[in-house]
Amino acid sequence: MNDDDNPKAIFPFDYFDPIKRRWVRARWKAKKADIEARGGRIVGPGWVPRDVDGRHGPSTDTDRSD
């Protein structure tokens, strides 16, 4: 499965700022459905965040013997 086709993929995008009256590059990434629902436009390839062990943060392996 291509990352662009993955429903968990996030994309860099532009959105239209009605105050400035121009397209602005977002400082965050979002899912394709969220971008399309709010009228944004995708400007780069998709990326799927991957966690190695299902947790966030440093590993706390207690089975090691030092």
Rank of each mutant, 00 (worst) to 15 (best):
residue 17 D to N: 14
residue 18 P to A: 12
residue 18 P to D: 15
residue 19 I to P: 00
residue 19 I to D: 09
residue 19 I to A: 13
residue 19 I to R: 11
residue 20 K to A: 15
residue 21 R to C: 08
residue 21 R to A: 01
residue 21 R to M: 09
residue 22 R to I: 10
residue 22 R to S: 10
residue 23 W to M: 11
residue 23 W to V: 11
residue 23 W to N: 12
residue 24 V to W: 07
residue 24 V to R: 14
residue 24 V to M: 03
residue 24 V to S: 01
residue 27 R to S: 14
residue 28 W to G: 00
residue 28 W to P: 00
residue 28 W to L: 04
residue 30 A to G: 00
residue 31 K to V: 06
residue 31 K to P: 00
residue 31 K to M: 13
residue 32 K to G: 04
residue 32 K to T: 05
residue 32 K to R: 15
residue 32 K to P: 00
residue 33 A to G: 00
residue 34 D to Q: 08
residue 34 D to P: 02
residue 34 D to H: 07
residue 35 I to P: 00
residue 35 I to D: 04
residue 35 I to L: 05
residue 36 E to H: 02
residue 37 A to D: 08
residue 38 R to V: 11
residue 38 R to Y: 07
residue 39 G to S: 06
residue 40 G to K: 02
residue 40 G to F: 02
residue 41 R to A: 02
residue 42 I to A: 08
residue 43 V to R: 02
residue 44 G to L: 05
residue 45 P to D: 06
residue 45 P to S: 15
residue 45 P to R: 15
residue 45 P to I: 00
residue 46 G to V: 03
residue 46 G to A: 07
residue 48 V to Q: 04
residue 48 V to P: 03
residue 50 R to W: 05
residue 50 R to A: 09
residue 51 D to E: 12
residue 51 D to P: 00
residue 52 V to N: 12
residue 52 V to Y: 15
residue 52 V to I: 14
residue 53 D to N: 15
residue 53 D to R: 14
residue 57 G to N: 07
residue 58 P to C: 10
residue 60 T to E: 14
residue 60 T to F: 07
residue 60 T to H: 11
